[in-house]
Protein backbone atom coordinates (compact mmCIF):
# COMPACT_ATOMS: atom_id res chain seq x y z
CA UNK A 1 0.00 0.00 0.00
CA UNK A 2 1.44 3.40 -0.99
CA UNK A 3 1.56 6.20 1.61
CA UNK A 4 -1.01 8.29 -0.27
CA UNK A 5 -3.44 5.39 -0.34
CA UNK A 6 -2.79 4.81 3.33
CA UNK A 7 -3.54 8.36 4.37
CA UNK A 8 -6.57 8.34 2.10
CA UNK A 9 -7.99 5.27 3.81
CA UNK A 10 -6.95 6.67 7.19
CA UNK A 11 -8.75 9.89 6.32
CA UNK A 12 -11.80 7.97 5.26
CA UNK A 13 -11.65 6.07 8.54
CA UNK A 14 -11.55 9.34 10.49
CA UNK A 15 -14.45 10.74 8.47
CA UNK A 16 -16.39 7.58 9.18
CA UNK A 17 -15.59 7.83 12.90
CA UNK A 18 -16.69 11.47 12.96
CA UNK A 19 -19.95 10.55 11.30
CA UNK A 20 -20.49 7.65 13.71
CA UNK A 21 -19.58 9.80 16.74
CA UNK A 22 -22.25 12.32 15.84
CA UNK A 23 -24.77 9.53 15.52
CA UNK A 24 -23.63 7.87 18.75
CA UNK A 25 -23.84 11.01 20.87
CA UNK A 26 -27.20 11.85 19.31
CA UNK A 27 -28.58 8.45 20.27
CA UNK A 28 -31.24 7.62 22.79
CA UNK A 29 -30.03 7.52 26.38
CA UNK A 30 -30.75 4.45 28.44
CA UNK A 31 -30.00 4.66 32.15
CA UNK A 32 -29.62 1.74 34.49
CA UNK A 33 -27.70 -1.40 35.28
CA UNK A 34 -28.46 -4.83 33.94
CA UNK A 35 -28.89 -7.90 36.06
CA UNK A 36 -26.97 -9.79 33.41
CA UNK A 37 -23.20 -9.93 33.47
CA UNK A 38 -20.87 -9.15 30.64
CA UNK A 39 -19.60 -11.36 27.90
CA UNK A 40 -17.21 -9.91 25.32
CA UNK A 41 -13.84 -11.71 25.35
CA UNK A 42 -15.36 -14.30 27.66
CA UNK A 43 -17.90 -14.95 24.92
CA UNK A 44 -15.19 -16.85 23.08
CA UNK A 45 -15.79 -19.61 25.59
CA UNK A 46 -19.54 -19.21 25.78
CA UNK A 47 -22.23 -21.10 23.94
CA UNK A 48 -22.73 -20.12 20.29
CA UNK A 49 -25.23 -17.30 19.93
CA UNK A 50 -28.49 -18.30 18.28
CA UNK A 51 -28.68 -17.07 14.74
CA UNK A 52 -30.88 -14.04 14.15
CA UNK A 53 -32.31 -15.52 10.99
CA UNK A 54 -33.60 -18.99 11.75
CA UNK A 55 -32.83 -20.09 8.18
CA UNK A 56 -29.08 -19.56 8.84
CA UNK A 57 -27.61 -21.88 11.46
CA UNK A 58 -25.18 -20.43 14.00
CA UNK A 59 -21.65 -21.78 13.75
CA UNK A 60 -18.62 -22.02 15.98
CA UNK A 61 -15.08 -22.90 15.00
CA UNK A 62 -11.87 -23.49 16.92
CA UNK A 63 -8.39 -24.40 15.71
CA UNK A 64 -5.08 -23.23 14.23
CA UNK A 65 -4.86 -21.06 11.13
CA UNK A 66 -2.98 -22.91 8.38
CA UNK A 67 -3.46 -20.41 5.56
CA UNK A 68 -4.91 -16.97 4.88
CA UNK A 69 -6.31 -16.21 1.41
CA UNK A 70 -7.52 -12.63 1.20
CA UNK A 71 -10.29 -12.51 3.79
CA UNK A 72 -10.70 -16.25 4.20
CA UNK A 73 -8.97 -18.05 7.04
CA UNK A 74 -8.21 -21.72 6.49
CA UNK A 75 -8.44 -23.28 9.94
CA UNK A 76 -7.50 -26.79 11.06
CA UNK A 77 -9.68 -27.76 14.02
CA UNK A 78 -8.29 -29.52 17.07
CA UNK A 79 -10.25 -32.65 16.28
CA UNK A 80 -9.32 -32.98 12.61
CA UNK A 81 -12.06 -30.74 11.20
CA UNK A 82 -11.38 -28.10 8.56
CA UNK A 83 -13.05 -24.68 8.52
CA UNK A 84 -13.05 -21.84 6.01
CA UNK A 85 -13.79 -18.64 7.87
CA UNK A 86 -14.86 -15.59 5.93
CA UNK A 87 -14.03 -12.21 7.48
CA UNK A 88 -16.06 -9.15 6.56
CA UNK A 89 -16.11 -5.47 7.51
CA UNK A 90 -18.56 -6.39 10.23
CA UNK A 91 -16.34 -9.06 11.80
CA UNK A 92 -14.81 -8.07 15.11
CA UNK A 93 -11.23 -9.25 15.63
CA UNK A 94 -9.71 -9.68 19.07
CA UNK A 95 -6.03 -10.33 19.47
CA UNK A 96 -5.12 -9.16 22.97
CA UNK A 97 -7.13 -6.05 22.10
CA UNK A 98 -9.69 -5.01 19.53
CA UNK A 99 -7.85 -4.98 16.22
CA UNK A 100 -8.32 -5.63 12.51
CA UNK A 101 -7.93 -8.64 10.23
CA UNK A 102 -4.37 -7.55 9.30
CA UNK A 103 -3.18 -8.60 12.77
CA UNK A 104 -4.08 -12.25 12.15
CA UNK A 105 -1.16 -14.49 11.20
CA UNK A 106 -0.73 -18.04 9.97
CA UNK A 107 -0.02 -20.29 12.97
CA UNK A 108 -2.32 -18.36 15.31
CA UNK A 109 -4.99 -20.20 17.23
CA UNK A 110 -8.56 -18.96 16.98
CA UNK A 111 -12.11 -19.15 18.18
CA UNK A 112 -14.74 -17.88 15.74
CA UNK A 113 -18.46 -17.37 16.00
CA UNK A 114 -20.71 -16.69 13.05
CA UNK A 115 -23.22 -18.07 10.63
CA UNK A 116 -22.84 -21.20 8.51
CA UNK A 117 -23.13 -20.32 4.82
CA UNK A 118 -24.65 -22.63 2.18
CA UNK A 119 -21.21 -23.09 0.54
CA UNK A 120 -19.81 -24.55 3.76
CA UNK A 121 -17.83 -21.49 4.88
CA UNK A 122 -18.52 -19.62 8.10
CA UNK A 123 -19.28 -15.92 7.86
CA UNK A 124 -17.69 -14.77 11.11
CA UNK A 125 -19.36 -12.26 13.40
CA UNK A 126 -16.46 -12.35 15.83
CA UNK A 127 -13.06 -14.01 16.01
CA UNK A 128 -10.78 -14.25 19.02
CA UNK A 129 -7.17 -14.93 18.11
CA UNK A 130 -4.84 -16.86 20.46
CA UNK A 131 -7.21 -16.26 23.35
CA UNK A 132 -6.40 -18.17 26.54
CA UNK A 133 -8.16 -18.25 29.88
CA UNK A 134 -6.14 -19.91 32.63
CA UNK A 135 -6.16 -20.28 36.40
CA UNK A 136 -2.70 -19.64 37.75
CA UNK A 137 -0.67 -18.80 40.86
CA UNK A 138 1.45 -15.65 40.76
CA UNK A 139 5.04 -16.72 41.44
CA UNK A 140 6.88 -13.51 40.70
CA UNK A 141 6.29 -9.87 39.82
CA UNK A 142 8.56 -7.72 37.68
CA UNK A 143 8.20 -4.35 35.96
CA UNK A 144 6.96 -5.74 32.67
CA UNK A 145 5.76 -9.24 33.50
CA UNK A 146 4.21 -11.63 35.98
CA UNK A 147 5.65 -15.09 36.49
CA UNK A 148 2.76 -17.51 36.61
CA UNK A 149 2.48 -21.13 37.53
CA UNK A 150 -0.16 -23.03 35.62
CA UNK A 151 -0.37 -26.58 36.95
CA UNK A 152 3.26 -27.67 36.99
CA UNK A 153 4.24 -25.37 34.11
CA UNK A 154 5.87 -21.95 34.47
CA UNK A 155 4.44 -19.29 32.16
CA UNK A 156 5.52 -15.68 31.72
CA UNK A 157 2.62 -13.24 31.51
CA UNK A 158 3.70 -10.02 29.83
CA UNK A 159 2.17 -6.77 31.02
CA UNK A 160 1.21 -4.70 27.99
CA UNK A 161 0.98 -0.93 28.63
CA UNK A 162 -2.47 0.56 27.96
CA UNK A 163 -3.95 -2.90 27.57
CA UNK A 164 -3.38 -5.08 30.62
CA UNK A 165 -6.06 -4.58 33.25
CA UNK A 166 -6.74 -6.06 36.66
CA UNK A 167 -9.87 -6.72 38.65
CA UNK A 168 -9.70 -7.10 42.42
CA UNK A 169 -12.43 -8.81 44.42
CA UNK A 170 -14.92 -8.35 41.62
CA UNK A 171 -14.28 -4.61 41.35
CA UNK A 172 -14.08 -2.62 38.13
CA UNK A 173 -11.27 -3.27 35.68
CA UNK A 174 -8.34 -0.97 36.31
CA UNK A 175 -4.91 -0.35 34.85
CA UNK A 176 -3.56 -0.49 38.42
CA UNK A 177 -1.60 -3.74 38.84
CA UNK A 178 0.17 -2.62 42.01
CA UNK A 179 -2.08 -4.69 44.26
CA UNK A 180 -0.95 -8.02 42.85
CA UNK A 181 0.78 -10.23 45.42
CA UNK A 182 3.13 -13.15 45.12
CA UNK A 183 1.41 -16.40 45.95
CA UNK A 184 -2.05 -15.16 44.91
CA UNK A 185 -4.37 -17.30 42.85
CA UNK A 186 -5.45 -15.52 39.68
CA UNK A 187 -7.47 -15.97 36.53
CA UNK A 188 -5.66 -14.69 33.48
CA UNK A 189 -7.33 -13.86 30.20
CA UNK A 190 -4.84 -13.10 27.50
CA UNK A 191 -3.30 -13.78 24.15
CA UNK A 192 -0.96 -16.71 23.79
CA UNK A 193 2.23 -16.00 21.84
CA UNK A 194 2.85 -18.91 19.46
CA UNK A 195 6.55 -17.95 19.11
CA UNK A 196 7.56 -18.56 22.73
CA UNK A 197 4.48 -20.00 24.42
CA UNK A 198 4.15 -17.04 26.79
CA UNK A 199 1.06 -14.93 27.35
CA UNK A 200 0.30 -11.24 26.84
CA UNK A 201 -2.11 -10.42 29.64
CA UNK A 202 -5.39 -8.73 28.80
CA UNK A 203 -6.99 -9.14 32.20
CA UNK A 204 -5.94 -10.61 35.51
CA UNK A 205 -8.73 -11.29 38.00
CA UNK A 206 -7.76 -11.65 41.64
CA UNK A 207 -9.65 -12.65 44.73
CA UNK A 208 -12.80 -13.72 42.92
Amino acid sequence: MSPSQHSESGGRRLDRRRFLTTAAIGGATIVGASALGGLDADAAFAEPMPSLDTAIPAAFAEGRIVAINRNVLDVAGSHGERYLIQLTNATSVWKLRTTTAEAIEVGDGLYARGAAMPDGTIAADAVWVNIVNVYVTIRGIAKDRLHLQHGSAEVVGHIVPDTTTASYLGGALTADLSKTRIGQEAQVLGAWRPADGNIDIARVSLGH
Partner: peptide, 12 residues
Protein backbone atom coordinates in the same frame (compact mmCIF):
# COMPACT_ATOMS: atom_id res chain seq x y z
CA UNK B 1 -10.21 4.38 32.40
CA UNK B 2 -9.02 1.42 30.30
CA UNK B 3 -11.24 0.54 27.34
CA UNK B 4 -11.89 -2.85 28.93
CA UNK B 5 -13.41 -1.05 31.94
CA UNK B 6 -15.77 0.93 29.67
CA UNK B 7 -16.77 -2.28 27.88
CA UNK B 8 -17.41 -3.87 31.27
CA UNK B 9 -19.56 -0.88 32.28
CA UNK B 10 -21.51 -1.17 29.03
CA UNK B 11 -22.04 -4.89 29.43
CA UNK B 12 -23.49 -4.36 32.88
Amino acid sequence: VPVAATVELLEH
